[in-house]
Amino acid sequence: MERRKKLREALILAAEGMIAEKGLAGLKTRDLAREIGCANGAVYNLVADVDELILRVGSRTLRRLDEALTGAEGAGAASPQETLIRIAIAYCDFAAENLELWRALFEHRMERGKIVPDWAISEQMELFRHIYRPLAALFPDRSPDELGITARSLFSAVHGMVALGLEQKLVAVPLPALRNEIAALVRATLLGLVVPAR
């Protein structure tokens, strides 16, 4: 039992390294099996399938992203607006520093007919608290559902800028410029939300 646990951990770490180096398309179970010293078929005694393996790697990525966003929130001395800007820039920096692992969170598609397990959805949704809390301080009269929609919309805007800005093609933006643009977007969005609320 202990050996299986250690082998499973080694598999997830090896998969994480492979995705970080080669992207999601470079994940090969045969290479992973060789790296951790087991037969190719034994991989599926450690995880149910490749989908679970990718989700387990994603879980580790989300945990580190959570730590980065928590660090960006600071001790709470900043205004809600400034906190949201810090969080957005920390998200951008995390994506830039962990590009392939971050991309894998959004590129992975479950095998047809399979649904994402509840534990994975819960881990993803938990990160929205970083956006939700400062928004709740800004808009105390909004319902939880309204705040949830605003949090997801703000995330979508920032994520879109990060995804396109970090593309290695036509729309690539230098990281310092991307940080500034993200800060400007969050400020403008919040100003647009605050003014009608008043």
Rank of each mutant, 00 (worst) to 15 (best):
A188C: 05
V195Q: 05
S79G: 02
M18E: 00
M110N: 07
E52N: 03
R3E: 15
P144H: 11
A20N: 02
F128I: 15
I36R: 05
T70V: 07
R4F: 14
V195T: 12
N98R: 03
R63L: 14
D31Q: 09
A177C: 13
L190H: 06
K28G: 09
R112S: 14
R4Y: 08
E82S: 05
V171K: 02
D118N: 08
L175Q: 00
R142E: 12
I131F: 15
W102D: 11
S143C: 08
R198H: 04
A68R: 11
S122H: 05
Y44K: 01
L185I: 10
G26W: 07
V162K: 04
W119F: 07
A163H: 04
L178D: 14
G192R: 08
G76K: 02
V162D: 12
E21R: 01
S153A: 13
E16H: 02
I19P: 00
R133T: 11
D49H: 01
L32E: 10
A151V: 15
L178I: 07
A72S: 05
E21D: 02
L13Y: 15
V171S: 02
G74V: 03
A95W: 04
A96G: 00
I54L: 07
A33R: 05
G17S: 04
E123N: 07
V195P: 06
H108F: 08
E126N: 10
A72M: 08
G74N: 03
L13S: 06
E73H: 05
A39G: 09
L193W: 04
K5N: 14
A33M: 10
L154H: 12
D66R: 13
E52R: 09
I54A: 05
T150L: 14
I115A: 14
T70G: 11
I149V: 10
R103I: 05
L62H: 15
D49V: 00
K28A: 12
T150N: 12
V162T: 13
G192S: 09
A163T: 11
K6M: 09
L53G: 04
Y44S: 03
A68F: 04
N180I: 12
A14G: 04
L53T: 03
R34T: 11
R187W: 07
A183I: 08
E146Y: 13
A95E: 09
L164E: 06
A78K: 05
V173M: 00
G148T: 12
E97K: 01
E16Y: 03
G23H: 00
E167M: 07
L170Q: 01
Y44P: 05
G58A: 13
A78S: 04
Y91I: 08
P144N: 07
A77F: 03
R30N: 12
N40W: 08
P176Y: 02
E146S: 13
P196L: 05
L24D: 01
K114F: 10
A183N: 14
F139E: 10
S59F: 11
G113V: 05
A136V: 06
A177F: 10
T189W: 01
W102E: 11
G23L: 00
E9K: 11
R64K: 08
L147P: 12
R198F: 06
V195A: 03
L13G: 10
I36L: 03
G148Y: 15
G113C: 07
I54Q: 08
A10L: 12
S59I: 06
V47I: 07
A68G: 05
E111M: 02
A68C: 10
G165V: 13
V173F: 00
S153V: 13
R86E: 14
I115S: 06
